[in-house]
Design a protein around this nucleic acid. Structure first.
Lengths: 260, 260
DNA sequence: TATCATTTGTACGTATGTATT
DNA sequence: GAATACATACGTACAAATGAT
């Protein structure tokens, strides 16, 4: 074999993932004609068989269909819609008060300590309740979440409230004014095996990983969580005052002091 | 072969990803002893060579080390590679005034109109200068950028200033107080061919894509840009006042009106 | 109808990577 | 480590379906 760009992952799988993404984003609209196998192969510098296998993967997923002599086409109703085009999914991700959202509780633990990496350089509460859950939109999971909530705040929630609402929203409802600042760190990774199962996406596809802390005025970590978003379902919208953005106060970067 | 859990991905890569995940989660703490190759192989129903290859992947990543006759162990300081621990790269990404940053100008155009998707529902300036560039850290590109700057503001910059400073910082220096609000949208994608070349990363690897608008008090788009970050070099740190985050004002989502 | 270019689908031979026993 | 089998990837070639001439 020549040089597998990324050893261990077949080229046709990688090529398929790029095309899958373009279809989901609407760059290749429903019904449109895709490049011929020869064109696709030449464009990416792979053998025709490899390009055809990539189309085969997408065809089995129902995203494209091929016809001898005519070409390969994007399916009429591509089932997978990217978040960029789905306003409700976009709201489910970005709106703390999002309503059109199903929550699938996986596991709960009471009165746990907060892991050191979630605490960071801040003050912990006495103990935390841990909630593992998935957020579901139109029957498909788009986010896996591990939440750590101050146990004493969690005690204020009505029974089963976590099944219907996001936790930050619940805290704001039952302890209004308590939360003061959101700190979050975003990064990107390929899905490993457990994650690809939890999010029901192919192994190795891009995933957005976020850790988030919500602090009160005293700098105590009231809420901390880890989030994993399916890459093809992730769109984050933000609006930040310029001076806040410019000075990014609270930026938690060890060993770094700006020279101004 | 038996049954590949996920076709197109080698089993040893999948197995390695499971172990990597457990190490990252702390289930397999630093210094702890891992199962023998035979145990690991039996536990997952794979051949011993396959299990050994999985350990080989992790060993090359510095996550584990093996010693003949003793066994395989989680590394003492599980070196998390990537941007997470590189404070200067992290600053190069997040700090508008970042200094330790090389800028590679690719192309420039003067007096262009602003593309509709970058303008959004806002007011445009008369014309924009376009700057295509790459940001380089330690000799390696980590970000490809296409910037559109209000031509009249750009005219204030000293010659060649774009080679040394980020553009938002330049605007703030030469037109202080002009910028008012940052709006950005983040999404995730696999790298297509041109992008993988520009960022010098393998085809199909995760990339973070961002579009950013910076508005003045009148709601005019003074600066707009598209950013593509290599996934393995991307870490974004944010700190947002809770009430700003809760109401995410200016969230630009078409066709969505919250029911409160 | 017949012919042609286009395009998918199938096949062969070879080489290498992966996985099993 | 050896023998074996399968998957991936390359190049090439050709058959079959399609649409246009």
């Amino acid at each position: 074999m020549k040089t597998a760009v990324e050893a261990g992952v077949a080229q046709y799988v990688q090529l398929a993932s790029v095309l899958r993404h373009r279809i989901a984003q609407g760059e290749l609209p429903a019904g449109s004609r895709l490049p011929t196998v020869a064109e696709l192969a030449d464009a990416h510098g792979v053998a025709r068989i490899t390009a055809r296998q990539a189309y085969g993967v997408l065809a089995r997923e129902g995203l494209v269909h091929s016809a001898r002599g005519r070409g390969t086409f994007v399916a009429d109703a591509p089932t997978q819609r990217g978040a960029g085009l789905d306003a409700h999914l976009r709201a489910a991700i970005n709106d703390p008060a999002a309503a059109e959202l199903r929550i699938d509780l996986i596991k709960q633990h009471r009165r746990q300590p907060l892991p050191a990496d979630l605490l960071g350089p801040f003050k912990p509460c006495a103990s935390y309740d841990v909630v593992k859950k998935r957020h579901i939109h139109q029957g498909e999971p788009f986010c896996l979440i591990e939440m750590h909530v101050d146990s004493s705040v969690r005690a204020l929630f009505p029974r089963g409230a976590e099944k219907r609402h996001k936790i930050a929203w619940l805290i704001n409802q039952h302890a209004p004014g308590r939360l003061h600042e959101v700190q979050q760190t975003l990064s990107v990774a390929p899905a490993d095996l457990p994650l690809s199962r939890a999010l029901d996406c192919p192994f190795g596809t891009p995933v957005l990983q976020m850790t988030r802390r919500v602090l009160d005025r005293q700098g105590q970590v009231v809420l901390a969580g880890r989030f994993w978003y399916r890459g093809d379902r992730f769109v984050m919208d933000q609006s930040i005052p310029f001076d806040v953005w410019l000075h990014h106060p609270g930026m938690v970067i060890p060993d770094y002091h700006r020279a101004i």
